[in-house]
Every structure is written in structure tokens, then in C-alpha cells.
């Protein structure tokens, strides 16, 4: 029988038991996809699918990642060989937007640093003075689904919301209460810069030493998108030298971060375990939606999560 290789050993197949029962394939949890009988491969976001996959599994026609970002898949190489690539979009938009605004408001109000300060015996004067959220400028880099939800949350809190996205026009942003600005203006004028762009060759190190130097020294950076959007070493330098006031990161160059991750020693940094996407409901959705899409593909239908670009 044909095999579908599930690379993620933690994939909760029991959540999709009804759907799986209808599929004329075996679902096989394995560390590698090898063999003529493999027709599909599903990966977790931290699992990199090799570009030479078809050398070892020549009959693969579907490759999926159970995440919104698909930087772990060699999409152009696979599509060139006739492989359909799928991801799961939109299952955690609210969660990521809420986590982002949580981190932005925690940074502006100094919640995390004041908690530590109080535990260590401090009281007054504050080492980190809370700032007004209302009227602070929130700069959103990437105005897709999540960026728009973050904008709405920022507007509710009375923030002055600006965004940069070369693919979204001014009128669309204006209708959502957001001013479109160029990327230099965004970095130079925002109280909080938050990243909601996909990781692509052209967005890697989008926030580099030059962008960090453009930011105000009382400004904060939030990254709930992908680690490599930020030049990690440059962020460390900026925090250590006070070039920016602080940052909150949910993502890292390597995940999970190693025990000697230098970020844990940087000042004024909140760290999160790639948890912005999470809620109890969202925790199962990517798996069940991806299995649903696998079923569609095997029935000859078009999966809802097809990554564009293939023929």
C-alpha cells in the first residue's frame, strides 16, 4: 500500500482517526521519507524537508508543513518536480495578534521588568518607567491577515498605527485605520515595531544593524513571526548598548534555543517559547486541517492550503 510519511513524532493522528479511516494509504511516523511507496510527506514547522527528497522517494506528490510559515520546505524545487506543497493558514491568527499586542503592551507598561524588579526587592523609583499606550505609535511590518488583526487591536488601545507592506495599497490600510508609511519612516518613528512578514530570501535579516540604528532609543521590537527576520547578533548589540529600549521575541535562529543561547543574557528582553500561535483550540487545528487537506489531495480534490507558485 502507498505510504504517507509523517515526520513529526508528536503528530496526534488519533485526532483525525475518522478521516484517516477513509484514506487508502498507511500513515507512517518516520524520521525520513525513503521508498517508492511514499506518496506524501507531512512535516512540523521546525523540520526541514530536503530539496533532494525525490531522489529517495521518487513518487512523492504532496509535501506539507503543519504551520503558516513554510520556510522549512524547499517549495520552488519541489514544485518544479510537480509536487504540490501545502501549509495551514489562518488557524492561529487571533492568537498571534493577541500575543503580539500582549507583548507590545507589556513592553510599553514595563510589566515584565517591573515584575522582576519587585521580586528582587525594588519598589520606587522604577527602573523602567511605564509609558502611555494611547498615542504611542505601533509600526507593523507586513500587513497580511495577522498584521491587520494587530492593527485592529492597536487601534482599540488608542495607538497610532502605521504599517509597511509593499503589496498592500494606501486605501486598504486607511480603511482599517492605518497609515501606510515607507519602511524608513516606520523604523525611525515607531514606539513599537512588530514583524508580521513571512521568511523569504528577501526578508531574511530584514531587521539588521542599520534598521536597529534607525529605531528610537526608547523604542521596542516585537518578533512573533520568524527568527531569521532579525539579525540576532545585531539585536543583541542594540540591546546591550541601549540603541533600543527593549524587545520581545517568540522566535529564534535555532528552535528550541540551545542552553547557551546568548539572548538569555541580553538586557531588556522578553523571551517566549514560540507560543504566540497557541491556544487549546489552535493547538490541534493545524494537524487536523492538514490531514483534511491530505484527504482532499488523495481524493483528487484541490487542498485548501496549497502554496501558490506551482503549475
Amino acid at each position: 500500500m502507498k505510504r504517507v510519511v509523517i515526520l513529526d513524532p508528536l503528530w496526534p493522528l488519533e485526532e483525525s482517526a475518522d478521516v484517516i479511516a477513509t484514506l487508502d494509504v498507511t500513515l507512517d511516523k518516520a524520521a525520513e521519507a525513503v521508498g517508492d511507496d511514499v506518496v506524501a510527506v507531512l512535516a512540523a514547522p521546525e523540520q526541514r524537508v530536503p530539496a533532494d527528497l525525490l531522489d529517495r522517494a521518487p513518487n512523492v506528490r504532496l509535501v506539507g508543513t503543519c504551520s503558516t510559515g513554510y520556510d522549512n520546505l524547499p517549495v520552488p524545487e519541489l514544485q518544479a518536480q510537480g509536487v504540490t506543497c501545502i501549509h495551514v493558514a489562518g488557524y492561529c491568527d487571533d492568537e498571534v495578534a493577541e500575543h503580539t499586542i500582549t507583548l507590545a503592551s507589556a513592553l510599553l507598561r514595563g510589566v515584565h521588568q517591573l515584575d522582576r524588579f519587585t521580586r528582587e526587592g525594588g519598589w520606587w523609583p522604577f527602573p523602567r518607567e511605564p509609558r502611555r499606550i494611547r498615542g504611542s505609535r505601533l509600526g507593523i511590518v507586513g500587513f497580511g491577515r495577522i498584521g491587520r488583526l494587530v492593527a485592529a487591536q492597536g487601534n482599540v488601545l488608542g495607538m497610532d498605527v502605521v504599517a509597511y507592506d509593499e503589496y498592500v495599497d494606501e486605501a486598504t490600510m486607511r480603511d482599517l485605520g492605518v497609515e501606510k508609511v515607507d519602511i524608513d519612516t516606520l523604523f525611525e518613528t515607531s514606539d513599537v515595531v512588530t514583524l508580521h512578514a513571512p521568511l523569504l530570501p528577501e526578508t531574511r535579516n530584514l531587521v539588521n544593524a542599520r534598521r536597529l540604528a534607525q529605531m528610537r532609543d526608547d523604542a521596542y521590537l516585537v518578533n512573533c513571526a520568524r527568527g531569521p527576520l532579525v539579525d540576532h547578533a545585531a539585536l543583541g548589540d542594540a540591546l546591550i548598548h541601549g540603541a533600543i529600549a527593549g524587545a520581545a521575541i517568540d522566535v529564534y535562529p535555532v528552535e528550541p534555543p540551545p542552553a547557551d543561547e546568548p539572548a538569555f543574557g541580553w538586557p531588556n528582553l522578553m523571551v517566549q517559547p514560540h507560543s504566540a500561535w497557541y491556544s487549546p483550540a489552535a493547538s490541534l487545528a493545524p494537524y487536523t486541517r492538514q490531514i483534511d487537506d491530505l484527504a482532499r489531495f488523495l481524493r483528487g480534490e484541490t487542498p485548501v492550503g496549497v502554496i501558490p507558485g506551482g503549475s
Binding site: L103, H112, V271, S275
Partner: peptide, 22 residues
Amino acid sequence: DHTMALIYACLRGVVMLDGLVR
């Protein structure tokens, strides 16, 4: 606004998660 920041921080667990990641 500070109260709202704390409500968000409780529900999203951000302060505790920071300590746990470290």
C-alpha cells in the same frame, strides 16, 4: 491600560513563559 496589559499578560502567560524559557 496597565490593567488591560496585565489581563493580556495573564491570559497569554507571557511573564511566566519568559521565566520558563530561560
